[in-house]
Design a protein around this nucleic acid. Structure first.
Lengths: 159, 159
DNA sequence: TGTGTATAGTTGCGTTAACAACATCTTCTC
DNA sequence: GAGAAGATGTTGTTAACGCAACTATACACA
């Protein structure tokens, strides 16, 4: 039985990637949950807060997250219901609408972020010696640019 | 507005990780879909195929994947319906049952793997100079061991 | 102006997952 | 060996997502 095929080095290498990622991610998700946010909701909040006037058109939000447009509709529905976001009409294009962070949403994000950053430091950036981290980030950038060329580092990077 | 807080280096760093991961993963998922497999189903098939007698107890399978036990019940349901897997009674413990790969399942996996490995090479291992890759894998192992100490590299790594 | 095409967002439907409650079987303790 | 405690897997319920269909609006162009 071609056991070698299943144990190919490439699978092992990529498995390491997956396990590191899911391990870190699940810790972050736990902390977000303590603040009543899912990973997706946190990402939405962060993206919007970074944007001009703390708002973004629905489809731009979809493009910046890993969601489809219908997924965005639903997340925004929920977050609007919870008072974290509100929809605003777009003055120039009546087809469009903005999702905008409310004061309550900003408060929630501000309460969540410090712990989030601490965890990233604890389980990711702080785990590696400075030089290794630098090299790793360089390699990650290479991979990211190859695989998601759209995501220019200006718009950058969230979880 | 504390814009600096949202643009913290740690977020940028982790965002790179996330974008690289999701970018690669979505390409792999596409190839798996061409063979009628979801990421989870592929992982199940691979884990089982690597195991003694190409089978594993349901709960062990849950432990090795990112699924809950009820999640495993359902995946195995579907895959059994599709003929990729079958359930077998455990002779020593009548509470337990095994999920075992069928010939058809093994055939499917064998058909899927070469393309899968190629894609890993194309978008991950092959993107980096040998030395960078080695260093990166070392760093990933450090992260993985910190964050998912259970997953010893013997059982290793899948996607 | 009127018509066709493209774009923005929402909704119905099917799929998949987790969680909790549950039934069944094993093991431990006395 | 009888009952308690624990393990194993399944099922009901709920939540989240994507796709495809749909509505409303904008734009091109004759």
């Amino acid at each position: 039985m071609a056991t070698d095929l299943y144990d190919d080095d490439r699978i092992t290498a990529f498995g390491l990637f997956v396990e590191a990622y899911t391990g870190i991610m699940s810790r972050l998700a736990g902390q977000l949950a303590e603040h009543g946010l899912s990973v997706v909701e946190f990402e939405v909040l962060l993206r919007l807060s970074r944007s001009e006037h703390q708002q973004l058109r629905m489809s731009d939000l979809a493009a910046q997250t890993s969601l489809s447009t219908s997924g965005v509709t639903r997340v925004v529905d929920r977050m609007e219901r919870d008072g974290l976001l509100c929809r605003r009409a777009c003055p120039h294009d009546r087809r469009s609408s903005y999702a905008a962070v409310t004061t309550s949403g900003l408060t929630r994000l501000t309460a969540t972020l410090p712990g989030h950053l601490e965890l990233i430091a604890q389980w990711f950036t702080g785990q590696l010696p400075a030089e290794d981290l630098t090299r790793m980030l360089g390699s990650l950038r290479t991979l990211r640019d190859a695989v998601a060329p759209g995501a220019t580092s200006g718009v950058a990077a969230v979880d």
